[in-house]
Design a protein around this nucleic acid. Structure first.
Length: 555
RNA sequence: GUGGGAAUAGCUCAACUGGUAGAGCACCGGACUGUGGCUCCGACGGUUGCGGGUUCGAUUCCCGUUUCCCACCCCA
């Protein structure tokens, strides 16, 4: 049986009704704040995420779905390189390679399994020692194996120190090497006797590394720059859609997951930097959660300052950690090196007293950032949105500035954050655009729906049929369809049976569908042009003339 | 990627120290030919995730593998 791939899932009714409920509430609420929808592609150049999210983040370095798009190879370059590589080798493997590739189905199957494509050129002359007459040149190309691409990215990273430049021009040439011994023994060399040797180079004449978006902010900012959206002043944009991360699945975290997000972005002159924007976004989120009936949420707020503030803070943090880190848990010791800010996420009870003594970003805010943060708080207080300050709340990525926030909710397992966001005044510039301060957030829709399921089920938000039209007897399907069409034009939800159903079965079907009424369309009714309409809840049944049916049902 | 737990009918779950698979619900049909929900009766439904091993015999014990769940890592 073919199953949904690991970490993905089907959303089935009635649960989908809950998703629709959430999304329509989102559209309603966001609209009231004059946000408009933007839809960006679900895949983008890999470079966008490498630069936008950060190359050294886990998301980019190991959690993306990335592939090489384009099959156009520089064949001459591959052949030249292959021949050069073989001049110094024992040419016997050329012969072995030819024989076995052509004649060894298990080996070909193995290649297919690895996602490698085989291409053979005939008639290439190879150096002495090869078979007389025709020989074959054999090259292997990785198709869209993400493992192969990941391996290449790592290899290039090591080789060049960086891979941010020239990111899209990757290829690999795999060379078949068969040990002489094995080749002599049998012309049908088993796949385990074959070694595949790989080396990387620029063999694509034109191709591009693409990635399924792991988040949507980078795409939105890319679109902002590409379409010169600053010419419209302030932009308030929202999106709803799938995102992809190659993570190990756990509660509420899937490899295809859904995010609802919004961004306020524009030139500083349009007010995009104003604390009023931060407060507006936060107040909108509070309104949305209330509207969805989510109770018990908590807004946690912090300011991570400007780039300079954070540099000073990082320095101080490292200094403060140095003498004490040895006594902390192994995770913290690792974090202290890789990402000191993450030490604040530590949940080990013994480490808490140490963490309490560490410096806080709030001590390093400059005048502007402090005033900005105070203004945000003041507006929130004035509009009556509850919040709590959490000076441990930090953001790992460089372009984040000033306001950072999370809405948390209990009963969500270890991942208690239902949405998070913050200000990213430096992102547009990091992507090559003009200064465009912005603030945004992303809601994990999967988790949002999950927390709703506790209170409201899909059933409760599902619109049940108003009426079930039961055709009764031969030739009645047409009449029933006609009636259903008329009723649907009055915005009624109508379900339709079949003339072959016995009436009992129609009643059962109507009850199961949850219809309010059942409408019987039989020979008698058609003759009289008046139809038996029964209220399934009360049992009351009346005969209603055709012209009054819609009105009667709508009552 | 790491660790722990799990996988039996469409769903929720049984099956004693190894003895050849069962219930409730759902679905379909009948009791009931144009009147549902309730009741009763019946039928359907499985290579026990997959592969290997031990055994006369494996759902059960062992190994591998895949997937799911929970957590770690990380994170909007």
């Amino acid at each position: 049986m073919i199953k949904a791939v690991r970490g993905t899932r089907d959303l089935l009714p009635p649960e989908t009704a809950l998703w629709n409920f959430v999304e329509s509430a989102v559209r309603d609420v966001f609209r009231a704040y004059n946000f408009q929808e933007i839809r960006t592609p679900i895949f983008e150049p890999t470079e966008l995420f490498a630069r936008g999210v950060g190359e050294d983040t886990d998301v980019v370095s190991k959690e993306m779905y990335t592939w090489e798009d384009g099959e156009r190879f520089n064949d001459k370059k591959i052949m030249d390189e292959w021949l050069r590589a073989n001049e110094s080798d024992d040419p016997s493997h050329v012969q072995a390679g030819r024989v076995n590739v052509q004649g060894s189905p298990p080996f070909l199957a193995k290649l297919k399994e690895l996602g490698v494509q085989l291409q053979v050129w005939r008639g290439i002359q190879v150096p002495s020692g090869a078979l007389a007459g025709r020989v074959e040149f054999v090259a292997f190309r990785p198709k869209v194996s993400s493992d192969a691409i990941t391996a290449l990215i790592e290899a290039r990273k090591v080789a060049k120190g960086q891979y941010s430049q020239d990111f899209g021009n990757l290829a690999i040439l795999l060379r078949l090497v068969v040990p002489d011994e094995a080749a002599r023994k049998s012309p049908w060399v088993a796949s385990k006797d074959i070694e595949i040797e790989g080396f990387a180079g620029n063999y694509f004449s034109s191709s591009q590394s693409l990635t399924l978006r792991p988040e949507n902010t980078a795409g939105v900012v890319r679109a902002y720059i590409e379409h010169k959206m600053w010419d419209r002043g302030l932009n308030k944009l929202y999106y709803i859609g799938p995102q992809f991360r190659r993570e190990r699945p756990q509660k509420g975290r899937y490899r295809q997951f859904y995010q609802i997000g919004a961004e306020v972005i524009g030139p500083p002159s349009a007010g995009s930097e104003s604390p009023a924007r931060d407060a507006e976004v936060l107040e909108m989120l509070a309104t949305l959660l209330d509207r969805l009936g989510i109770t018990g949420w908590n807004l946690e707020l912090n300011s991570v300052g400007c780039a300079q503030d954070r540099a000073a803070f990082n320095e101080a943090l490292r200094k403060a950690l140095e003498p004490v880190v040895g006594t902390m848990c192994v995770d913290c010791q690792r974090r202290a090196v890789t990402n000191p800010l993450r030490v604040f996420d530590c949940k080990v009870p013994e480490d808490q007293p140490i963490i309490d003594t560490l410096p806080r970003i709030s001590q390093f805010l400059d005048e502007g950032c402090r005033k900005h943060f105070e203004a945000v708080q003041q507006i929130l207080t004035q509009v009556g949105v509850r919040f709590s300050l959490n000076d441990r709340l930090v953001r790992g990525l460089d372009y984040y500035t000033r306001t950072a926030f999370e809405f948390t909710h209990g009963a969500l397992g270890a991942q208690n954050a239902i949405l998070g966001g913050g200000r990213y005044d430096g992102l547009s510039e990091a992507l090559g655009g003009p200064a465009a301060p912005g603030i945004g957030f992303a809601i994990g829709e999967d988790r949002l729906v999950m927390s709703l399921q506790a209170s409201a089920s899909g059933e409760s938000v599902l619109k049940r049929p108003d009426v079930y039209v039961a055709a009764l007897g031969a030739g009645m399907n047409g009449e029933a369809a006609r009636l259903a069409r008329e009723l649907r034009r009055h915005d009624l939800v109508v379900d339709l049976g079949d003339e072959n159903f016995r009436l009992k079965k129609s009643f059962e079907a109507a009850t199961k569908a949850g219809a309010k009424y059942i409408l019987i369309v039989g020979e008698n009714e058609v003759k009289a042009d008046a139809f038996a309409l029964k209220n399934l809840a009360t049992g009351e049944q009346v005969s209603v003339p055709r012209a009054q049916l819609a009105q009667k049902i709508q009552e």
